[in-house]
Simulated assay, not measured.
Amino acid sequence: MNTRTLGTRTLGTPGSFASAPVTSALGLGCMGMSDLYGPADEAESIATLHAAVEAGVTLLDTGDFYGMGHNEMLIGRAIRGLDRDRLTISVKFGAQRGPDGAWLGYDARPAAVKSFVAYSLKRLGVDHIDIYRPARLDPNVPIEDTVGAIADLVKAGYVRHIGLSEVGADTIRRAAAVHPISDLQIEYSLFSRGIEATILPTLRELGIGVTAYGVLSRGLLSGHWSRERTGAGSDFRSHSPRFSGANLDANLALVERLRALAQEKGATVAQLAIAWVAAQGADIVPLVGARRRDRLAEALGAVDLSLTPDDLRRMTDAVPADAVAGARYAPSQMAMLDSEAKRTG
């Protein structure tokens, strides 16, 4: 792993709350090490986590439902013996899974929140979680009740900061009225720019940061994807509209437009796409989903890439906001997204 200075970013602006979390300028999304992208090599996953921390990555993102607890236990093993105070561990909760991996809905009742955190602390082997957030809005529980329960955990010392995930502007305002919010975790990339209309302006008005996932559109924007690679079985991309049929062909053609620009910059398509997200504001921390050391090394190279205003314009000219073919999730999953249902971003 080449040594470099990743730099830091603050989730939340001064004055929005007493001590906003400061993280590395890129974070590591750990989901793929346990779930949804097909089989992963556990030894390589742990080696990748170690390499990320050694390279200066401090933000590790997980969910208690990734692999039904496997991901938290994996991170717990990987960070054992490391300097805990250097790390910012972000955990999503609330998604319900069956023993076959099926999605059963969301539970964000206050009692459930406090139970979930107890299990996460045990699996991670830590005494506090830095950022705790509901994975989705529970339609049966007011966001005020969920945030209030996490606020109790903050007071008790089990949680340091409260985050949100995939919610719209109205929900963000309601949550922030209960307790300061550090960041919204939401998909944001050249292929997914819905947050720009209303959600991002709302976050900036309230002094809330963004942890952006899907910055490579689940590998579609990596420059490494091809029709032959489209997953099957446990890889959810086999059911994703953007990876299906004519949509995939159209989207890969957009990637080739970016490849030409990347070559001009002496970069890879993945590095260009990550750098574009990072360039959208100092309040945005891209999460890279690398689960192998070589992919991690490539992703971290994005911090060395300087994009001029002309570069950014050429990229959005090559990939206009409405150019991507297909929704980012299947219809049943899109229906669960407060951020989409209200069309506030």
Rank of each mutant, 00 (worst) to 15 (best):
M1P: 14
N2Y: 10
T5M: 14
L6N: 04
L6Y: 12
R9L: 01
P14L: 11
P14W: 07
A18D: 12
A20M: 08
V22F: 12
V22M: 08
S24E: 03
A25Y: 04
A25K: 02
L26Q: 00
G27Q: 02
M31Q: 01
D35G: 07
Y37W: 04
G38P: 11
A47W: 03
A47V: 01
T48W: 00
V53R: 00
D61C: 00
H70D: 10
N71M: 00
R77M: 04
A78L: 01
A78Y: 03
I79S: 00
G81H: 06
D83P: 04
R86E: 02
R86T: 00
V91A: 02
Q96V: 12
P99I: 00
W103R: 15
A108W: 04
R109C: 06
A111N: 13
S115D: 14
S120Q: 04
S120W: 01
K122F: 15
A135G: 11
P139Q: 08
V141H: 11
I143T: 07
D145M: 10
A151P: 10
K155M: 15
A156Q: 13
A156T: 12
A156G: 11
Y158E: 15
H161I: 05
E166F: 08
V167L: 08
G168E: 13
H179L: 10
S182Y: 03
D183R: 15
L184P: 09
Q185E: 09
E187W: 05
E187R: 12
F191T: 14
E196K: 08
A197T: 14
E205F: 12
L206A: 10
L206Q: 07
A212S: 08
G214H: 05
V215P: 10
L216H: 01
S217V: 13
S217L: 14
G219H: 06
L220K: 12
H224R: 14
T230R: 12
A232N: 11
G233N: 09
S234W: 10
S234P: 15
R237C: 05
S238K: 12
H239I: 11
H239E: 15
S240C: 11
P241T: 05
G245P: 08
G245W: 03
A246E: 14
A246V: 11
L248C: 07
A253F: 04
A253N: 05
V255A: 09
E256N: 13
A260Q: 14
L261Y: 03
K265Q: 03
G266V: 01
A267W: 07
V269H: 13
V269K: 08
Q280F: 02
A282E: 15
D283N: 04
I284A: 06
I284F: 07
V285Y: 06
V285K: 01
V288W: 06
R291L: 04
D294W: 11
L296R: 08
L296C: 06
E298G: 09
V303L: 13
D304G: 09
P309N: 02
P309V: 05
R314H: 07
T316M: 11
A318E: 05
A325W: 09
A327T: 13
A335D: 10
E340R: 12
E340F: 10
